[in-house]
Nucleic acid binder design. Structure first.
Lengths: 235, 235
DNA sequence: CCTCTGTATTGGTCGGACCACTTCGCTGGT
DNA sequence: ACCAGCGAAGTGGTCCGACCAATACAGAGG
């Protein structure tokens, strides 16, 4: 009748180990920043081999839950938004076709709201930082540099919105390779001027602390790219 | 001088293997659904041990990029929104305190937009499905069953919005354990009646195909929980 | 008290062995 | 000719043991 009490036997042992560790963290038995036992000890505790335990640790590492330091030990991350949402970039990097449009639609929704929130909450210091990237972006012709400042421009705004989780998601949706893939074609059509105009409009709304104007400007900004990409796929 | 041409030597070999495979997919050299070489062959090709290759594969498996079938082989997933965003549930499950409020804020933004889109696009069949879960939810007192139908209610609406990516994100933000943790306390205060009223309002807006009413109803619905949770943490 | 050093600890990598499951061709009967 | 059943080959899953590489820490030396 298999009254085996210690082995639920569902899935692979590695998968079970992953769940066990996740559960330990969820239940608070492992605090953020805390150090775990050694791989060898953990393997013994869960009754599995070190190889399997290593796979489980590696999995939780890429998910941003654990962090392995060579020679030191394994630690629980701070479990902050940035740690856990880093994997969001993978989604953006591996999505293609219609999925890209959907991602831009999500970004438009979140970015417009974040920009609206930023308009209401942004501090002079943060605003100065935004302006720094805005002027730097308009002062060069190097596409690489423009892209970098463009990213920073929106990142500062997202940070000013005061929701780290939203900022982390937007960061993932704007990951380097994702933007590079879409931006490349978009900017080749001489969209630089339009982009500058839209960025200026967003900036004006931030200065005026006008949330609705900021929301509209940000939505239009992302929407432009969205429509362009939609047309690319349609034709 | 280390003019080693074949070894960039950045990070662990496993991490490099992960990037290599991700790149192969991003470049289109590996199509969705396609089968990869065996673990042993892949390890040989990349010049690493099978152990390290297995860790890389395991990592990409938990990210929803690859799928390993015992005895058959390793395959690239369809790379659809659901596959890649499954890990989003982990974020919801491991977040606590202020992070939970932020997650609910993101959900409020996306859910309200998704509900508005659904109001404009929902088909009679989809509407019938939504109503099925609405009535079933009101016909029982079992918290578990209510939660299940509640989840399905919102899932159907998200699906009707026509953006799979958004639906997948919302699915993660409503993962079983996440809802269970928050709902438990919320419903204990006799919020059932209020929840039913809010669900009814959302349903009315869908029937009327009124996007703005739907947006408002959904935002209020999530906002109620959000405010309650905010108060819980504040006190 | 500080610095250097060597040793123990710990994660990273490797190779091989065996197990569990799937697949598919072969066998044998109908 | 067809098909059910069997068995070998292939493949992922698990385990073991060894060694490498980076870190941490205690003790020696200044």
């Amino acid at each position: 009748m298999n009254v085996d009490e210690t082995a639920p036997q569902k899935g692979t042992v590695t998968q079970r180990a992953i769940e066990r560790i996740k559960a330990m963290i969820a239940e608070g038995r492992l605090e953020p920043g805390q150090r775990l036992p050694t791989e060898r000890d953990l393997a013994t505790q869960l009754g599995i081999s070190r190889s399997s335990m290593r796979e489980a640790i590696r999995a939780l590492t890429v998910l941003g839950v654990l962090e392995a330091r060579h020679g030191s030990g394994i630690y629980v991350t701070q479990l902050e938004a940035g740690d856990l949402l880093e994997t969001f970039g993978v989604v953006a990097d591996l999505s293609r076709g219609p999925r890209l449009v959907e991602l831009l639609e999500v970004r438009r929704i979140l970015e417009s709201t974040a920009t609206a929130l930023a308009a209401a909450r942004i501090t002079p210091d943060q605003l100065a930082e935004v302006e720094k990237h805005l002027t730097a972006m308009n002062a060069t012709d190097d596409p690489e540099e423009i892209l970098a400042h463009d990213l920073a421009f929106h990142r500062e705004i997202a940070a000013a919105a005061g929701n780290e989780t939203m900022a982390a998601i937007l960061e993932g949706l704007s990951s380097r390779t994702f933007r590079a893939r879409v931006w490349r074609g978009y900017q080749e059509e001489g969209a630089f001027a339009r982009t500058r105009r839209e960025h200026a409009a967003i900036h004006r709304a931030l200065v005026a602390h006008d949330p609705e104007a900021a929301r509209a400007a940000a939505a239009a900004h992302v929407g432009e790219v969205e429509e362009w990409l939609r047309a690319q796929l349609g034709g």
